[in-house]
Structures are given as C-alpha cells and as structure tokens.
C-alpha cells in the first residue's frame, strides 16, 4: 500500500466512522425501552382519554314511566320524573371509536303491563343506533352503542 501513513490513517478513520453510524443506530438503547435496574420501574403510560363529543339520546316508552335515569361510567348523566312517553337530550360524553355503554333504569306504576323502552343514540357522526329494553315495574339494563 502506497501513500503517507497520515493519509492511510485518515482513510481508515473515515471508514470506521462510516460503519459506526449504522452500528450505533442498530445497537443504541432507546431511553423508553431500556431495561431498568431490578426493582426500578419506568413511568406508567398515560391512557389517552377519548375525546368528549356531542351525542343525542331519545327515549320512547310504551307506558309512561314514573321515572328513568341514564348513567355513563357510573355517573348519572340524565334523569327524568315527568312521566312522559317521549324525551330527548343532547349530552357531551367521551365517545371512543368502540362506542359507549349506558346504564338505563326506568320504574313504572305497579298496575302497568309489560312495558318497553326504545333508546336511540345519535353518535358524533350523525348515525342513529337503536336499542330496546323490556320489563314490568322496573327495567334495569346496560345498553351498548353501537
């Protein structure tokens, strides 16, 4: 091999540098993925909450109820004691792509026959989803939409 030792050393240094970059990319440990020391933990991932969206709910009964209520994630979002056969409300709820489950409860007069309730949910895209529940004296059901 010809040339000055200085030039040869410089060329070798460049070659090592060129190889070093992809090697470093392949072997470097990401901060988020590196294994912690025994007993240590990294920060738990924060769950991304579903965005709050506007939905519309309509309830229709075959028999006027004494009262009804709707709960979402354990919290009451709508209740009514007007005893009408139709009601509707616009709600602001977290609405993930998987949809929502609502806990629906309605009480009917003791003399009432078998009663039915129809729930229509209009989702943030404007699509209607319809579910029905049946019962005597009390309906208590978890209704999933869509």
């Amino acid at each position: 091999m010809r040339g000055s030792p200085l030039v040869r050393a410089f060329i070798a240094f460049l070659a090592i540098l060129a190889l070093g970059w992809p090697l470093w990319r392949l072997t470097a440990v990401d901060e988020a993925t590196k294994t912690a020391a025994p007993g240590a933990t990294t920060e738990a991932p924060a769950a991304a909450a579903a965005p709050v969206r506007e939905i519309k709910l309509q309830v229709t009964f075959t028999t006027p109820p004494k009262s009804f209520s709707i709960r979402h994630l354990g919290r009451e979002v709508w209740s009514d004691k007007n005893g009408k056969t139709e009601a509707e409300k616009t709600l602001q709820l977290p609405y993930p792509k998987e949809g929502v489950e609502l806990q629906f409860a309605a009480d009917f007069p003791e003399v009432a026959p078998l009663a039915a309730a129809r729930l229509v949910l209009t989702d943030p895209q404007g699509d209607d989803h319809e579910k029905s529940c049946w019962g005597t004296r009390r309906i208590e059901e978890v209704v999933a939409f869509p």
Partner: peptide
C-alpha cells in the same frame, strides 16, 4: 350477570 354488566359499564370501552 346483571351486577357484572353494571360494574363493567363503569369502564370505558376503549380501556377494556
């Protein structure tokens, strides 16, 4: 079954 459905309804569907 009713109790379980009501309890699980406390959990958002995207966290199941």
């Amino acid at each position: 079954q009713k109790w379980a459905k009501a309890k699980i309804a406390e959990l958002p569907r995207d966290q199941r």
